[in-house]
Design a protein around this nucleic acid. Sequence first.
DNA 1: GTTCGTTTGTGATTGATTTCACAAGCAAAG
DNA 2: CTTTGCTTGTGAAATCAATCACAAACGAAC
Lengths: 211, 211
Amino acid sequence: MCPAKISESAVRRLSLYLRVLDAFELAGKTTVSSGDLAERGGVTPAQVRKDLSHFGSFGKRGLGYPVSELRERVTEILGLGRRWRVGLVGAGKLGAALFFYDGFRGQGFDVAAIFDNDPDKIGQRWGRLVVEDIESMDRVMRTSQVEMGIIVTPAVSAQQVADRLIASGVEAILNFAPTRLQVPPGITLRNVNLEIELESLAFALTHENGA
Amino acid sequence: MCPAKISESAVRRLSLYLRVLDAFELAGKTTVSSGDLAERGGVTPAQVRKDLSHFGSFGKRGLGYPVSELRERVTEILGLGRRWRVGLVGAGKLGAALFFYDGFRGQGFDVAAIFDNDPDKIGQRWGRLVVEDIESMDRVMRTSQVEMGIIVTPAVSAQQVADRLIASGVEAILNFAPTRLQVPPGITLRNVNLEIELESLAFALTHENGA
DNA sequence: GTTCGTTTGTGATTGATTTCACAAGCAAAG
DNA sequence: CTTTGCTTGTGAAATCAATCACAAACGAAC
Ligand SMILES: NC(=O)c1ccc[n+]([C@@H]2O[C@H](COP(=O)([O-])OP(=O)(O)OC[C@H]3O[C@@H](n4cnc5c(N)ncnc54)[C@H](O)[C@@H]3O)[C@@H](O)[C@H]2O)c1
Ligand SMILES: NC(=O)c1ccc[n+]([C@@H]2O[C@H](COP(=O)([O-])OP(=O)(O)OC[C@H]3O[C@@H](n4cnc5c(N)ncnc54)[C@H](O)[C@@H]3O)[C@@H](O)[C@H]2O)c1
């Protein structure tokens, strides 16, 4: 009923369902079937039902799921019933794009601190924040109660940045540097590697048989 | 021996091995074992051998794989033995970060055109390129022979941008907009959804039992 | 040339995830 | 109150991916 062992891909699908539910709620629908969710989410109805059933029985047979209530439940399941404080390390091009992106705030994620090690960057005012010296991370992290870290430094610095984040109490890291980070057990790490995405497209184009 | 059906995750691991091979070659090693590759890639030796065996026998028993030759072979397999021309749609914050990032060029990907629909953006000079009107995509795409598209427009425009890209002959799309795109069979689509990444971190932090 | 230590390549096995298929449940209509 | 038409929730089955385990192959040593 509750959480035994949920696969990473099942969690990602929940995020997807949440977005579809938002759209349905906005459109004024009060109930959705697993078929509706599946169609808009690009999965099968059975998959939707199985994913949701891991966390409880939210639907009514013959009717479907109540949109508003299911949205609340999935929000809760994903841990989005609160706001999360994020620390951004690397005040470069990608760091700026992420910081000035509004979408995250809407989902409950607030960038609460920015760090860099370049004297030219340190002290710059970014919106309501000031770029901090990475040397003062420990102090800043504790006062701003940051819980997640995003790494957007060059690959060579990424491991030491990760170590610092962990030392400052961060337990979840999103890494954009194209390098494999080593983290102790208990720390959650996700990598976004755009080079791998492009290479996977190159592979697909190279090996397409039909089409 | 050659390609039957390679799983998406196996392809992504090949990209990983390639990076590890680069490092080994730089370090002057001439041969590597599956164990070496596995350690540096964060997978098991058996996985490495299985992944590679889908495409042929590149190693010598008792010895390992010749670094330089394996690197060439994997490069070839991934379709990276040539350069790829990429079209970027959306000259915004993320588009700029991607365009001015050097890493892609090093892997064989060249941004050959940038498009936007904002009159203020159209005509801007970005490096050696000029931001083009999306209305002239068809013409520009053909003259610059673009093969892949990257979508970094707001979500509401993403589907129509995808349709245009496909109409212009693009068969592979990397989409950063947080929306599920519909593409016909034969078109390869990869999504990068940073909100899902953050939400998956939130889920992990919320449901961590031990630690 | 035989032995020895090592490492590949791969069929068999285990494990995880997805799909199937259907009983159980609900609302609405008669 | 019973029938009808849908849709859920979920074990069982099927599919897909990862791991194991070992024979075959190779170089080096002697
Ligand atoms: N820009 C992109 O589109 C893009 C695409 C794919 C991957 N990436 C990866 O994302 C990362 C950042 O890319 P970018 O384009 O923003 O680079 P960038 O050079 O613009 O920014 C990097 C920033 O990190 C800072 N930095 C360096 N070492 C540091 C340290 N030890 N501690 C704190 N800050 C440090 C630098 O001062 C700089 O401000 C890189 O690893 C890159 O490979 C970027
Ligand atoms: N910036 C980020 O860090 C970030 C993070 C996650 C996701 N995203 C997603 O990436 C996309 C781009 O984000 P951004 O921050 O660069 O936004 P942005 O507003 O800075 O840039 C979007 C650009 O797209 C252009 N555009 C709009 N409609 C268009 C159309 N029909 N054809 C061509 N161009 C069009 C706009 O003129 C603008 O220049 C969005 O979908 C966003 O949700 C961005």
